[in-house]
C-alpha cells in the first residue's frame, strides 16, 4: 500500500520536536528574512553552519542535509549562466575563446544566490522534518488561521499520494501498451492527454460526494470551531520566539552595516 500521507515528518523525541509549530515557524521565517538582508556569501555560510546545532537538537543530524543533492544541478547552471552573462559584469576573471569570459561579479552573485538557496532548503527541511502538518494547522488555527485553509492543506496532503499511485498505474499501463514516451510530439501528447479526461470527471464526482460527507458532519456550521489536536504555546516557546526576533534584528543590522 502506498503511503497515505505526503509528509517528510520523522517522529523523534527531541527538544526541537516538542517546540510549538509556531515557534519553529518563527525561527524558519526569521532565517529566511535574514538571508534576504545579508549582502555577503560568507554571512550566508555562517547562517548555514548554524543548522548543525539545530539538527543536533532535533536528533536528525544526517537527514537535514539529504535534500542538498537536488540543488546540485541548479548550482552548476547558476554558476555557468551568471558567470558568463551577469548583467553588472566588470572584472574579467578568465578570458574564454569566441569573446566569452568568466566574470568575477557573476561568480560572486552566483555564490550569493546558491548559498541563499542552500540556507532556505535546510532550514525549511528541518522545519518539516520536526513538525507534523496536523500540529502546524492546529497551532495556526489558534492564531485565527481561517479554518478552510487548514482543511485545504490537510486534505491535499492526503489526496496527493493517491493521485500519484493512480497516475503511476496509468502511465505504466500506457507504456506497456506500447504508447512509448518516445516518438513525435503529437504522438506523445495523443498517448497521454486523453488520460486526463477521466481524471477530471472522477475528480468532480469525488468533490460532490465528499461535499455531502462534509455537510453531514456540520462543516458549514457557523459557530466557533474547536480542535481535537491540541498544541500549547509554553513558556519556553515564548522565550525562544522573543530571542529569535532579537537575534534577527541584531544579525540583520550587523550584516547590513558590515
Amino acid at each position: 500500500m502506498p503511503r497515505a500521507l505526503l509528509i517528510s515528518y520523522i517522529d523523534k523525541d527531541s527538544f526541537f520536536h516538542k517546540l510549538n509549530p509556531v515557534t519553529k515557524l518563527v525561527i524558519t521565517i526569521s532565517v529566511i528574512i535574514l538571508i534576504f538582508i545579508t549582502k555577503s556569501f560568507i554571512h550566508n555560510l555562517i547562517i548555514f553552519i548554524f543548522i548543525i546545532p539545530f539538527a543536533y537538537y532535533s536528533k536528525l543530524t544526517k537527514q537535514v542535509f539529504m535534500p542538498i543533492k537536488y540543488l546540485f544541478i541548479i548550482f552548476v547552471i547558476l554558476f555557468v549562466i551568471q558567470g558568463l552573462f551577469y548583467p553588472f559584469r566588470e572584472t574579467v576573471l578568465i578570458q574564454l575563446p569566441y569573446g566569452f569570459a568568466i566574470w568575477t561579479e557573476g561568480l560572486i552573485y552566483a555564490s550569493m544566490i546558491s548559498s541563499r538557496l542552500l540556507v532556505m532548503l535546510v532550514y525549511g527541511y528541518l522545519f518539516v522534518l520536526t513538525t507534523h502538518p496536523g500540529d502546524l494547522v492546529s497551532a495556526l488555527r489558534k492564531l485565527r488561521l481561517p479554518y478552510i485553509f487548514g482543511y485545504i492543506v490537510l486534505a491535499t496532503l492526503q489526496i496527493i499520494p493517491r493521485v500519484q499511485s493512480q497516475m503511476a498505474t496509468i502511465i505504466e499501463a500506457q507504456k506497456s501498451r506500447g504508447l512509448e514516451t518516445k516518438g513525435s510530439i503529437v504522438k506523445r501528447l495523443r498517448a497521454y492527454t486523453p488520460l486526463l479526461g477521466p481524471l477530471f470527471m472522477g475528480s468532480v464526482q469525488n468533490a460532490i460526494e465528499r461535499a455531502t460527507a462534509l455537510e453531514a458532519r456540520a462543516f458549514s456550521a457557523k459557530c466557533e470551531k474547536t480542535s481535537y489536536r491540541e498544541t500549547i504555546i509554553m513558556k519556553k516557546d515564548k522565550v525562544i520566539m522573543v530571542l529569535t526576533i532579537i537575534c534577527l534584528i541584531i544579525f540583520g543590522v550587523t550584516s547590513w552595516l558590515l
Binding site: R162, V163, R188, L189, A207, R210
Partner: peptide, 30 residues
C-alpha cells in the same frame, strides 16, 4: 467558497500534481 468549492481545491491540487507527473512521463516542455 461553498462546501463543494472548498472540497474542489485539494482535488484541483491533485490534478495539478497528476499533470506534473504526465509532464515527466512525456518529457516535453509542457
Amino acid at each position: 467558497f461553498t462546501t463543494i468549492a472548498i472540497v474542489m481545491i485539494p482535488i484541483a491540487i491533485g490534478i495539478n500534481q497528476a499533470g506534473r507527473l504526465i509532464h515527466e512521463a512525456l518529457g516535453l516542455p509542457v
